[in-house]
Computed example of a mutant assay.
Amino acid sequence: MKGLDDMGQEEHLKNIATEFQTEKDRIKGIVGEIGGKNNAQHKIVSLVFALLIVVLLVLGVALQKISLFLTLEIVVLIGIFKILWMFYEVQRSIHFQFWLLNSLEFRINDVDKRMKKIEKLLREEKQSGEAKEIKTPLESEKESQDIEKQD
């Protein structure tokens, strides 16, 4: 019998591991969409900036349609715009990650409060020796709403 329990526990752990991996991949995809380096928008903008610089250099240096000094100034200006755009994208990604971590912190604190409340109820039940009915927060809320409706 013990071997069967170990097999069931092993399957349960495998299921938890696969669920964790799928959730990890999903979150990785979301973060990648917001500010990842493999973002399609990031690639397009980088390509546009690179094409602008190449076109300006060809016009200015090879074809001499624009003066060399003006060409270099415009290329440097476009490079600065690219760097500013990259800072903006990184800031957006950092903001999203902060928001995600902040949300997780609030949820963890909520779970911690519930766990402490349940531990307290279990300790009280153990000390009193009586079998108290433990209600979930949802049941308690439903019961209070029923009482309010009766009033």
Score class of each variant (00 low, 15 high):
K120W: 10
M115Y: 13
S128R: 03
K126E: 03
N109S: 02
T136V: 03
K116A: 06
E141S: 04
L138F: 03
F106R: 12
E105D: 15
Q127C: 15
I134K: 00
L100E: 04
P137M: 01
R107P: 00
R107T: 13
K135A: 09
V111K: 00
R114D: 08
K126S: 11
W99K: 13
E133Q: 09
E105M: 15
S128W: 10
K117H: 05
L122D: 12
L101P: 01
R107Y: 07
E139M: 09
L121G: 13
Q127K: 15
F98K: 03
E125K: 08
L101H: 15
L122R: 06
K116Y: 12
F106Y: 02
D110I: 14
T136A: 13
D112P: 06
I134Q: 06
S128E: 13
K117F: 09
K116N: 11
Q127V: 14
K135C: 07
W99L: 15
D110H: 12
G129D: 12
D110N: 14
V111M: 02
S103F: 15
G129I: 00
K135W: 01
A131M: 10
P137G: 08
F106H: 05
M115Q: 01
E119V: 05
K132E: 12
T136M: 10
E133W: 00
L100G: 03
K120L: 01
E139L: 02
S128L: 02
E119C: 09
L100W: 09
K117D: 11
L101D: 13
G129R: 07
I134E: 08
N102E: 14
W99S: 10
R107S: 04
R107E: 11
S103I: 07
F106L: 08
